[in-house]
């Protein structure tokens, strides 16, 4: 799969993020591992440090295997001030995992993210491609049960 993606891109550093996004999207557990980083670095003519640096900078990317649904809690200041801690605590309780971990049934991965651009609706989270704002404990319970039912 990786080779199929790589052959579409020339040896040029500019394509790094595109390659990473494309590959992660296609990969079932949506993470990029060390061997793949080595291969991507070699193909684009950049160092492994460069790829590692980019992947660890953007919260879109992960170096650890993830579950079906990726829940990202905003940890920037406006959310923090609007009781973001409660959001994190509630989600950890509901899912039974800590931030950074994946549920045993591989349904959910809980992560932090930097600002989602919804400071007016703080506190906010993102699940996969969708953003949820003005969160409360009840609202979070409803959202999670919806994902449990649907997936």
């Amino acid at each position: 799969m990786l080779e199929n993606i790589l052959k579409e891109y020339p040896r040029q550093e500019d394509y790094l993020i595109e390659v990473l996004l494309e590959y992660q999207k296609q990969k079932a557990d949506r993470h990029i591992g060390e061997d793949e980083i080595r291969r991507i670095a070699e193909h684009l003519g950049v160092t492994e440090s460069k790829v590692w640096s980019v992947i660890t900078f953007y919260t879109f990317f992960s170096t650890r295997p993830r579950g079906e649904n990726i829940i990202q809690i905003c940890k920037d200041v406006p959310c923090y001030l609007n009781d973001g801690n409660t959001v994190q605590r509630t989600l950890e309780q509901l899912l039974g995992v800590q931030v950074g971990d994946t549920t045993k049934n591989q349904k959910f991965t809980l992560e932090h993210t930097s600002c989602l651009g919804h400071c007016d609706g703080a506190p906010a989270i993102r699940i996969n491609d969708k953003t949820y704002t003005n969160l409360s404990v009840d609202k979070l319970k409803a959202i999670i049960s919806e994902y449990r039912g649907n997936t």
Binding site: I37, S49, F57
Partner: peptide
């Protein structure tokens, strides 16, 4: 032009390390 060290992670969790947070001797 070796580029063994770089910024890893972001914000207050940013660190300067070789790739994968490993040893200098694991890299070139």
């Amino acid at each position: 032009g070796i580029h063994v060290l770089d910024n890893m992670g972001r914000s207050n969790e940013m660190e300067i390390t070789p790739a994968y947070g490993k040893y200098l001797s694991d890299q070139e």
